[in-house]
């Protein structure tokens, strides 16, 4: 028994929205980075599901590419969070407000 493509896509859309909401609503940069990872991985899930449905390996390869880039992005992201909040006791993006946005 196989799961229909639409279910995978619905799941990935839900994960994507949770990720987008997380970036907008949460104030902790680490949680925001995790939420961004959710968004990216929701796309991965969609890629893999579509690739399986259309028997086209390009989607699988794309997912691997995204995983690799996400790793690099996480490394840089965590490094930046560390230098920004090195001396802070807790991390909250509302504290980062030298530049008036």
């Amino acid at each position: 028994m196989s799961v229909a493509l639409a279910n995978y896509i619905a799941l990935s859309a839900v994960i994507f929205m949770i990720g987008a909401a997380g970036v907008v609503l949460r104030r902790n940069p680490l949680v925001m980075l995790m939420a961004i990872e959710l968004m990216w991985n929701a796309a991965n899930l969609a890629f893999v599901a579509y690739a399986r449905a259309s028997m086209n390996n390009a989607g699988h390869i794309f997912a691997f590419l995204v995983i690799t880039v996400a790793a690099a992005e996480a490394a840089i992201g965590l490094a930046i969070v560390v230098i920004v909040f090195r001396r802070a006791e807790f991390v909250d993006v509302d504290e980062v407000s030298v530049l008036k946005g």
Binding site: I9, S12, F16, M39, W40, A42, A43, N44, A46, F47, A49, Y50, A51, A53, S54, A58, G59, F62, V66
Partner: peptide, 9 residues
């Protein structure tokens, strides 16, 4: 990226 996934789909 999600847009690209949908375009691919």
């Amino acid at each position: 990226l999600y847009g690209m996934a949908l375009l691919f789909g």
